[in-house]
Design a protein around this nucleic acid. Structure first.
Length: 463
DNA sequence: TTGGGG
């Protein structure tokens, strides 16, 4: 008799009407969170499942087991879970499924592309049965046609993120990298530009504690950078230590994901995300309209003359510079970094986030020649660019007095000044978007890529 | 029982 009861797989719609009953259901995993310890020293994880009868928003399943090993180790959203002897309960008026460690059991199967009916994980009490196959096959068939229609309102594009806020992102995972021992970072992208941040370091910090060019301790290799899109921010996402072993295997480069509850932060004026124990993964198909929107934005930007200008500099960069060469095509800083020619010229719209030396009286060497380093950024990257000799003379319009040079510097770096032109102490900097010409060159003949540098040329700072 | 959201 017991066996027969197990075959009363209820559709989710019918299960919802069976409060306080013990039953079996099978569904597709739409979303799942990371495993955690409960306050009763059990372990738990929550997932959301759907089937043909209940496609949104999905029913929550709370799984409790004695240890982490016994929880379902889901390989991917879109996989199928079969749950036996689970309870239907209500919580705050919402119906959910509770998996009890004493009498429930489960089996996990690959999703719509699964080719066999062998579960990749089963719980101790689970009995494999021939009849399960037709339910799994049915769900797989339904999934092939299924289009998740959830709207975009719950998702933020990278251009909408805010500091200290947790957001849901639909993005492409470009790269996963162990940036230091046991420290992992994901590089994600959606084709849009993160907003410019204000820079809160002091100008003089550039001496001993310079503004970082990137958040990873070592720069990405040129080979990896070259695989990245040339428009849109590549957001660095830190993977919290405590969740590494539960999430790393779920993040695959070159796939799209929906990441729920990603914390957005800024460090050194650079945006980054954090995957925390509260982060969840959600199913995303290749037909998802959010994915199509990202692709459309990217294709449109690539096809436009001004598509490589930062979104935040529209309709035009501030008119603080004049460039000699209006005709060189616009490039983003990742274009500059990954261009196949060591020596080349570029037209860029950037912000100057730091300068070294920072005092106007030190911009020239004791022999009277300009030699300084600017830190340039756009939504795709940061680079150091030198202002050197004749190019400096052009940039600063000759050799003006220290006062005038300081005023020019403040304008260039967005230093806050009071009405009398004095710098306001401890104020953040908001550098304006500036158009400039850049050239790349190498300084060591037998290390052309390793010694590649950048210089501003043909650009005049106005006023 | 626990958690469910953050």
């Amino acid at each position: 008799m017991e066996d027969k009861d197990d075959y009363k797989f209820l559709k989710i719609r019918d299960a919802i009407a069976s409060i306080n009953q013990r039953l079996s259901i099978i569904g597709v995993i739409l979303e799942f969170g990371l495993p955690r310890k409960t306050k009763c020293s059990d372990c738990s994880c929550t997932l959301k499942i759907i089937d043909e009868s209940h496609q949104k928003p999905g029913i929550s399943v709370n799984v409790f087991t004695e240890n982490m090993d016994k929880l379902p180790h889901i390989a991917s959203t879109g996989d199928i879970i079969l749950l036996s002897h689970v309870m239907i309960k209500t919580h705050n008026g919402e119906v959910c499924v509770v998996y009890n460690k004493k009498f429930s059991s489960f089996a996990l199967y690959k999703g719509k592309h699964g080719e066999d009916f062998l579960p990749y994980q089963i719980s101790p009490r689970f009995c494999l049965r021939e009849q399960d196959k037709k339910f799994i096959a049915g769900l797989r068939k339904w999934m092939l046609e299924f289009k998740l229609d959830e709207g975009s309102s719950n998702f933020f594009m990278l251009r909408e993120i805010k500091e200290g806020v947790r957001v849901n992102l639909a993005c492409k995972l470009l790269h996963i990298w162990e940036i230091a021992q046991d420290e992992w970072m994901a590089f994600v992208w959606d084709g849009t530009d993160t907003p410019p941040t204000s820079i809160c370091t002091k100008l003089e910090d550039e001496m001993y504690n310079q503004l970082p060019l990137h958040l990873e301790p070592l720069p990405l290799s040129r080979d990896i950078l070259r695989t990245f899109p040339v428009v849109g921010t590549i957001l660095r996402v830190i993977i919290d230590h405590s969740i590494q072993k539960h999430i790393l295997h779920l993040l695959k480069a070159d796939t799209w994901v929906k990441l729920l509850n990603v914390l957005c932060e800024v460090n050194g004026g650079l945006w980054y995300g954090v995957l925390t124990p509260f982060t969840k993964l959600r199913y995303m198909s290749n037909e998802d309209h959010l994915l199509k929107d990202c692709q459309r934005i990217y294709d449109a930007r690539l096809s436009l003359t001004l598509g490589r200008m930062p979104y935040w500099s529209f309709p035009r960069p501030s008119l603080i510079t004049e460039v000699c060469d209006e005709h060189t095509v616009f490039g983003t800083l990742i274009d500059v970094l990954t261009n196949s020619k060591v020596t080349n010229i570029f037209n860029c719209v950037v912000r100057v986030v730091a300068a070294f030396p920072w005092r106007a009286e030190d911009f020239c060497s004791p022999l009277g020649m300009y030699r300084m380093r600017l830190t340039l950024e756009d939504p795709t990257a940061r680079i150091h660019a030198f202002v050197y000799a004749d190019d400096g003379e052009k940039f600063f319009d000759g050799y003006p007095s220290v006062d005038i040079l300081t005023r020019k510097r403040n304008k260039l770096l967005g230093v806050a000044v009071s009405n009398d032109g004095k710098e306001i102490k401890n104020a953040h900097r908001n550098p304006p978007w500036m158009q400039c010409c850049l050239k790349s060159y190498r300084i060591v003949r037998n290390d052309i890529w390793g010694s590649r540098c950048y210089r501003i040329y043909g650009t005049k700072l106005l006023g």
